[in-house]
Structures are given as structure tokens and as C-alpha cells.
Design a protein around this nucleic acid. Sequence first.
DNA 1: CTCGGACGACTGAGATGCAAGAGGGATGCG
DNA 2: CGCATCCCTCTTGCATCTCAGTCGTCCGAG
Lengths: 223, 223
Amino acid sequence: MLNDDAQPGTATERAYRFTKAGILDGSLPAGELISEGQVARPLRLSRTPVREAFLQLQAEGLLKLFPKRGALVVPVSTGEVEAVIEARDVIESHAIDRVAAASDDVLDEVVAAMTAAVADQVAAVTAADELAFVEADRLFHTVLVRAGCRSLLLDVYGSLRDRQLRMNLGALGGRFPGRSEGLVAEHRALLDRLRARDAPGARQVLREHLAGTRASVLGAPAV
Amino acid sequence: MLNDDAQPGTATERAYRFTKAGILDGSLPAGELISEGQVARPLRLSRTPVREAFLQLQAEGLLKLFPKRGALVVPVSTGEVEAVIEARDVIESHAIDRVAAASDDVLDEVVAAMTAAVADQVAAVTAADELAFVEADRLFHTVLVRAGCRSLLLDVYGSLRDRQLRMNLGALGGRFPGRSEGLVAEHRALLDRLRARDAPGARQVLREHLAGTRASVLGAPAV
DNA sequence: CTCGGACGACTGAGATGCAAGAGGGATGCG
DNA sequence: CGCATCCCTCTTGCATCTCAGTCGTCCGAG
């Protein structure tokens, strides 16, 4: 937010990061109609790279471009929450199946990585570091998906997590109201099932996990 | 291919369609490094809209942009075939579960639409109309996914089918070497299972169906 | 004959300029 | 005072221009 300019990368990348960050952290509020100039001016860029960034963000579903009108920061609708949860369920369940059926070596490696992520989460909770917690949470799930899915689904999953991050921030204002412990416990349960190669059990845990996420996002009136 | 100009839509759209069509029908061969001018010149456009089209196609995975070098028409690798098949399996299986658990009304409607698609396929086979056959095949699956998945997965599935289309054309030169009957039979079997709300059975049929597709794409040396 | 460095053509990244379309507010009329 | 209309501004779409990086080629030295 502060270092608007003099960032690394191409102009397009800078515009992309700036805009995406703005959307994710809420400084570009959902439902707002933003213009290319709004991004180009503070970054001291021309509109060309901004346009390319907008296009990319539209492909990710964070923006919706209206001809001659502007770019709408798509609001997180209830439907979208459901869609994201559904997609996560489908993809992560698949990953579970694959990992549970993998060789010992692969399974061990994945479980180790996921265990480490959980440890990071616990550390983040004690340090009261929101960002680190979210990052570790993301890592936990990403490791699973990376191990169990091919590139295509993996890419989809990546953009999914971005949207979910935004949902959390939008609905909860960035707070995880005491759900941290529950999340960690569910992660541990998932790991247990995975370690035992109990795919149906792991999927069940995942489903409950996602149901909890869904509830905390949808059911939170405010703070 | 013939009507290069005077098409409807914005310049960006025209560039997008032109390039995508070229990639899908093979006139822009996979592995080739194409330049913006190559598309802009025949369409009598400037390079700006072409660039935007390239960006979009990169997001869909059909192109890979190399800075200052050009745009690579990504070759259909064995890995990509596997990835597409995997993703289709995951998404369509999920759709099957959802549809099989849906209300009678929904199920009936979906089955009716899919039955109609199969009928179209049969008609296309007798008419020896490749294009219509592929279109009907696509419709068959799309109806299923549309009924069983929310927007997000549906979008993913859409781009999936494009890539698959390209794989077919690339590997088989557009021919379906006598597999048409098999495809129709498998579609019918899938419909039977679906009609009986036998989700596991339907998934099994689907898996075999996709295995057949995979084999015909990967394992087909020629005709 | 082969290898290496420099030159030139080509390509994309980004900036700028112009024109068309959409919306909102002021204005004139009933 | 309410409403339809016009105009003015804002925003994007696209073209054009400049700059920088990359690659192929050519020429000379060993």
C-alpha cells in the first residue's frame, strides 16, 4: 500500500499486484466501479499496463469489465461463496483420494509438509499473527492439492484461494473470531485420516471443515 | 478463416476469435512462436487489441507469452491430456452426484436434454457430419455439468472442453476413427445409470468413457 | 574451417493521443 | 413543480509512436 512505485517487475505486474491487493484488502471496496486511471495515476503508469492487469483480474473473477463504463469490483455474493466452497470440496476431495492411494514415500512427504504447516499455524496463533496464520492455512491445503492434482486443477485451486481470502476479509473484516483452534483441530483430524489412508474419512473431515468455513463466512453478521 | 474482416464485435473480440480458431483448427500449429503482427495484419487491426486477445488466450492456457520473444502455441503434451482428463473426471463426477441426488423434476429435465443430445449425435453419425457430432457430444456433457455445478466449476469446464477439442484435432487430425458408435453407447449407458439415480454406476461409466477418450487421443498412432 | 563478437532487423512493452459511447446533471418546456 | 431533452464530462477502445531487449547473421581473427 505504501510502496506504490519502484517495485520490481514489469509495469503490468505492478498494476496487477496493486489492484489485486487493493481488492483483497478492501481498499477498493466490492461493488465499486473503478477506472483505469484510478490505478494508473498513483503508480505513475500509463493506462496500457493497467488495462492488461484488469483483463487478468477479470479472468480470475475479481473484476468485471463494463465497456465504456469501468471495472466493477465484483461483490462477494452468497452464490459465489457456495461456488467456491463447492469447488474447493471437489478439488480437495480428489486430492485426498489421490494422496491416500499414493506410495508410502509420497504420502509420508505430504503428511510431513502438512504437519509442518499445522505447526506454523499453532505458532501463528500464539504469536497472534493473523497473516501468518492465514498463510499457513493456505499452505496446508495447497500442499495437499499440489500432491494430488495435476497442473490444471492446481491452477484453478490457486485462484480459488484468492477469492476465499477476499470472502474472509469481506465478511469478517480480517478477523477469525476464535475459529483458529477449530481450524487447527480439523486440520489435525484430516491429517490423521490421511495418515491412515482413510480417504472417505478424510473427505468427511474436509466436508465438515468447509462447512465450518462456509458458516463463518456467511453467518457472520459483522464484528 | 475466409471472413477475416467485417466481423461483428470489438476489435479485441475479432482478434481473439481469429487466433483461437487458428489454434483450434491447426492453422497456427502447436509449438509455433507467433507474433502479434501475424494476427494484426490480416485482420487490419493495430497490435493493441491483438495483445489483449493473446493475454486472454494465455489465461485459457492456449498460448504462452514470452517477453520480447513472442507467443508460443502451447503444444498438447501428454501431461496436459492427462490433466484435462483428470479435471473432466473430477468435475463431471461431481455433476453426476449432484444430478443423481436432485429432485425428480430436475433429473427428468437433464435426462431429457442429454437424451436429445445423444439423438443429435446419432443423426450426425448417419449424416457423417463431424462438426455436428462433436458439437452434440459437447452439449451432452455440458448439460450434465451445467445442471450439477455452480458457475465457477462450469467456467472451468468450458475452457476444458476447448482444450480437449484441440487435443482431438491435434492427435487425430479431426477424425474420430470409428469411435462414434462407442461414444454414443457409452453416453446411453451413462444416461441409464443416471436415470436410475445410480451415481456410482454412472461415475464408473464416465471413467471408462474418459479412459476411452484418453486412449484414442494418446494411443492413436494414426487411424 | 571454426569460433566469437558486433551489427542490424524484428518484436514486444509501454506511453500517448484521439474518438466514440454512456451517464449525470443542468436547462427549458409544459 | 415535474419531466423530457440536451450537453458536458468521464471512461474506455483503438491507433500510433518510441524504446528496449532478443535473435540471426555477417565478418574477422585464430
